[in-house]
Amino acid sequence: MENFDIEYIKEISRTDVRKCMKCGKCSGRCPAFNDMDIKPHQFVTLLGQGKFDVLLKSKAIFSCLSCMACVERCPRGVAPANVIEAVRDTVERMQNGNAIKAEDIPPIVDDLIPQQLLVSAYRKYRK
C-alpha cells in the first residue's frame, strides 16, 4: 500500500513547484477558472506549502478540464494541470486504488494525445 502524503503528490505530479515565479498566467488562461474553488496557481502554491489536507478537500480537481492550457502557457516549465491531476489521483487511490487498469486502455492510442488527458478522462467520465 502506498504512503499517501504530500511527498507522494509531489512525486507523481513530476513537476518542480519551486520553479513557479507566481505570475498567474496559468489562472489567467484557465477556461474553468470560475468553476474552481482552488485556482490552478493555488494548487502549485499549496503543494509547495505542503498543505496536503487542503488539496485533498478541493472540489476543483473535478472541474479541471485537463485542457493543458496552463501547462502550455507556463513560462517557467511548471505544470499546474499535472499537480491537479496528481491530487485527483491521490484522492482516487486513497478511496479505492486505481479505477482503471493499464490493459484496459485500447492498444492503439494516438501518440499526440497527452497521456494525462486520457487518464483523467477515464477517471472523470466513468460511471
Binding site: K22, C23, G24, K25, C26, S27, G28, R29, C30, K39, H41, A69, R73, P75
Partner: peptide, 20 residues
C-alpha cells in the same frame, strides 16, 4: 498577474488574465 489570452470580440480586444 499575467495575461493568459487576448481575443477579439465585437471589435474589442478582450484581455483575459489573473488578478492574483
Amino acid at each position: 498577474g499575467m495575461v493568459g489570452k487576448v481575443y477579439n470580440e465585437n471589435g474589442k480586444l478582450m484581455v483575459q488574465g489573473s488578478n492574483l
